[in-house]
Design a protein around this nucleic acid. Structure first.
Lengths: 189, 189
DNA sequence: ATCGTATGAGACATCTCTGTCTCACATGCG
DNA sequence: CGCATGTGAGACAGAGATGTCTCATACGAT
């Protein structure tokens, strides 16, 4: 059977482990990456021609996952505030990838990655612009900055959860509430 | 004269350049670091025994700079909201260091750096706790998370400014306003 | 002018990582 | 059972980075 379903090495699992490791240790060696995924260096190298190919695959899968979540969040529909909350909720499961992409995107520059990232930025930025046009979001914070801040806070929540500084279940609330309402106690709440 | 004042290589200047480079390219070689500081690899190596020593010095100076800014901001005094604004304003000039330390602190782990970082975390966290106790800050966002978010946003602003996505002069406003008030347009403003 | 100091350029051995290979073992299928 | 496939362990050479060295030069101080 050509398309055997045994495939004991799950490509996506390997890439997830690699993303989480590289997000906090960009200088990790192929051996460390392999061990973090629970496979040998030889097997890692059978699936990815080299480090560049691995990072490339990481970028492609990361962008694909983020775009899937972006589509699932349907941020073009409904109340922008709710859309932001949906976006954060959907993005959290791939926060490890987001942290990696956010921290290392300028390292290995590739045309395909740049294009995909640009598309994501544009999509997210449009949500913030829509909220501003509806008079819901502040005008002094640019969509580009809000986009950047969203990534940064999601990545920070992933790190904090990984280090135990915040509870994983609270991550979504922490990110979306801070982003939306800030830290000042609101009177009318 | 033993303590000659020529000293054409400014140690702090070298470390600043190294921090900015390593913040966006953690895999930079010693040669690249030297060139980014405008000196030769030999001279770089005369001042820092090796890469580990360089990173160590980077950590020590970074913590020192941040603590200086922290002291200058006098965040224990006055209105917590103003204190946060002062803290952001003071921290921005060393945001390059902060971005580096924030992104790579778990890499080269050292007892001295951990201790200094712990002290800073505690100091900043105390400000947020004070704001909560005065009823000014939300209670559902923990001081630890607010501290983390502060670092993440300052680092994000440094990156964004470096890439031209936001104007440098707006960075302080972008960070402190988002952190304090969030992105939702406030009615009473 | 002369000396001392700091630097840049480059040579050099060494080390680590990388990429490729071979071999042995385990698992699933006929 | 015999076979094929996928894996782990380890060896191996090559590439790149590192750390150390020497030598020539530029600059300020005396």
């Amino acid at each position: 059977m050509r398309y055997s379903c045994l495939m004991s090495v799950d490509r996506e699992h390997v890439l997830r482990a690699a993303a989480e490791l590289l997000a906090r240790k960009a200088t990790a060696s192929m051996d460390e990456i392999a061990k973090s995924a629970g496979i040998s260096r030889a097997t890692l190298h059978r699936h990815f021609a080299g480090r560049d190919a691995l990072v490339q695959a990481l970028g492609v899968l990361g962008i694909q996952l983020v775009e899937e979540r972006l589509a699932a969040a349907r941020i073009d529909e409904g109340d922008p505030v709710d859309a932001v909350r949906r976006l954060v909720t959907e993005a959290l499961p791939v926060s490890g990838f987001l942290a990696f992409l956010y921290g290392e995107n300028q390292l290995y520059e590739s045309e395909a990655m740049d294009e995909g990232w640009e598309r994501i930025d544009e999509h997210v930025g449009a949500l913030f612009r829509r909220g501003q046009e509806q008079g819901l979001f502040r005008l002094d914070l640019t969509p580009a900055w809000l986009t950047e801040a969203l990534y940064a806070l999601i990545a920070a929540s992933a790190w904090s959860a990984q280090e135990g500084r915040i509870a994983s279940k609270d991550a979504g609330h922490m990110v979306s509430e801070l982003l939306l309402g800030g830290m000042i106690r609101s009177v009318e709440k």
